[in-house]
Design a protein around this nucleic acid. Structure first.
Length: 469
RNA sequence: GCGCUCUUCGUCUAUCGGUUAGGACUCCAGAUUUUCAUUCUGGCAAGACGGGUUCGACUCCCGUAGAGCGCACCA
């Protein structure tokens, strides 16, 4: 560990699927720590599994990172391109006697494991080729395995979990090079981390066991040991493993559900990391505060109610024009895309202050604003339909002249409505609600008289007349 | 089965041997309001269980239970 140097962090996803919520949090923690310390944050695509890696997945991960607002330093490293280097390291280990060739066939190993399981023994490679000379194998296919220590213990010093001790006799001699000569993940990560100068490895707790194995390679090569921080996994709302059904969705699915990137960063940060009683932690503050010590040890569950609440907060904090852009983008992504006119966008922005404190997601916002960007009489939702009784429609007709006589300012419109309420002995709400239903098609909306003013005299009257009798 | 890890309100968490165990979300009640929402006030609600150690344990140790992860020529 060289304390004099700035930390080097990395996020190393395998492109076998989209960037899910757990990966996004791992990336976020790495990014925050790098930005907090003034260090470097690298991105490495672990595409050594040629069967499962796809260009689409790479694309999805890059897009996900971009949406989350997580930028990385330097070029993206593609692990597969470094296979020669990985092979060279394996070769070095081989010549130094720190690795050996194993000629056991897959069938043989399966049989071995079955026997172990039947005997209630731990299932692991028994080292049958550990001390046999390669000559015995002849020209049969072989894999290269690390010659790990078979006694003593390996300790992973983890910043989150503390010192975790593994008995070396439980760590089997893992494969470095497959029989087709390609490097395995275990070899590739260690070599790449070393070559990239990675000083801190922040990754999911599912890799904790791997850390002990990887330490064997690191020690064999005499490389510096990085600081490890294994962060607990995220579970679904029911405590079970996160699945598509719950929230192991692509981060972009959260965008489509109407969540803001700032919300996701804040929510994911608080899921497993804390700073006293603080809940609202904008990204700039997060960079200032983030540390490894305050990462919790236990797995956390997704809580969409809290996500919604946070998102509502950030929506209210966001500038009107930006929210309009979000709504516009959302509508354009819809199944039949819907493109808003310049006038409609302007109307949205003007009404945004009243709209945004009523929405928890951009999707809700777009829905609640529909009456603003759709001209003409509005379709009524069930509650509005129920409210617009014949009596209510007659009331609208009765109040219409008074409204028309105003200068169409919010105050004047309210005055007219109040006046009508007084002379007819109604409460203001009994006048306002039918008007609201006729104007917006809904029983709840931003303040009615401001809304009518924003809509304009002609448009509002068209809608009112459609539901008056 | 073997190994590793985790365990405070329903959920996310604070607490780093001495507190009426705090905050946030959810939920409930109330205030404000032309609706809804926002905002504000108040309320419900927790140390998995069992042993120790200690004057004193949520906090340290052991055990039990539950949960998660790992045990591939996947990453």
């Amino acid at each position: 560990m060289t304390d004099s140097k700035k930390p080097v962090l990395r996020f190393a996803p395998s492109p076998t699927g989209y960037l899910h919520i757990g990966g996004a949090r791992t990336a976020l923690f790495n990014w925050l720590y790098a930005r907090h310390t003034g260090g470097t944050f690298l991105l490495r695509i672990e595409d050594t599994d040629r069967e499962r890696s796809t260009p689409e997945a790479v694309e999805a991960i890059l897009n996900g990172m971009a949406w989350m607002g997580l930028d990385w330093d330097g070029q993206t490293v593609y692990q597969f391109a470094r296979a020669d280097r990985h092979r060279a390291v394996a070769q070095q280990l081989l010549t130094e006697g720190k690795a050996y060739k194993c000629f056991a066939t897959a069938d043989e190993l399966t049989a071995m494991r079955d026997a172990q399981k039947a005997a209630g023994k731990p299932m692991r490679y028994d080292g049958r080729w550990r001390d046999r000379g390669p000559a015995e194998g002849g020209d049969k296919p072989y894999v290269v395995r690390i010659k790990g220590r078979d006694s003593g213990e390996t300790v992973v010093h983890d910043k989150v979990l503390g010192d975790v001790v593994f008995q070396n006799d439980q760590l089997d001699d893992m494969i470095l090079l497959r029989s087709d000569g390609t490097p395995t993940y275990m070899l590739a990560v260690v070599v790449d981390d070393a070559d990239m100068g990675v000083t801190h490895v922040i990754r999911g707790a599912d890799h904790l066991n791997n850390a002990a194995r990887q330490l064997q390679i690191i020690e064999a090569m005499g490389w510096p040991v990085p600081v490890y921080a294994h962060v607990p996994l995220i579970h679904g709302p029911d405590g079970a493993k996160l699945s598509k059904r719950h929230g192991a969705l692509a981060v972009e699915a959260y965008r489509d559900m109407g969540y803001l990137p700032e919300t996701m960063r804040n929510y994911l940060l608080r899921l497993g990391w804390s700073h006293g009683d603080d809940e609202i932690i904008p990204t700039a503050q997060a960079i200032e505060w983030f540390n490894l010590e305050s990462i919790g040890k236990s797995a956390a569950r997704m809580d969409f109610k809290k996500l919604d609440n946070l998102n509502g907060h950030y929506i209210r904090e966001t500038k009107d024009r930006v929210l309009t852009a979000e709504v516009v983008a959302l509508l354009e992504r819809q199944a039949p895309p819907r493109v808003l006119s310049e006038a409609a966008r302007e109307r949205l922005t003007v009404a945004m202050p009243g709209l945004k404190e009523r929405a928890k997601t951009i999707v809700e916002l777009a829905g609640a604003a529909e009456f603003l960007y759709t001209d003409g009489p509005q379709p009524l939702d069930a509650a509005a339909e129920k409210l617009l009784t014949p009596d209510a429609r007659a009331m609208i007709a009765a109040v219409l002249p008074a409204l028309e006589a105003t200068d169409w300012s919010p105050a004047a419109l309210e005055g007219a409505a109040r006046g009508h309420a007084e002379t007819t002995g109604l409460k203001l709400g009994q006048v306002a609600q039918p008007l609201r239903a006729a104007v917006t098609g809904k029983t709840s909306s931003p303040p009615l008289f401001e809304t009518m003013a924003q809509l304009g005299r002609a448009e509002t009257l068209t809608r009112l007349r459609a539901y008056s009798s």
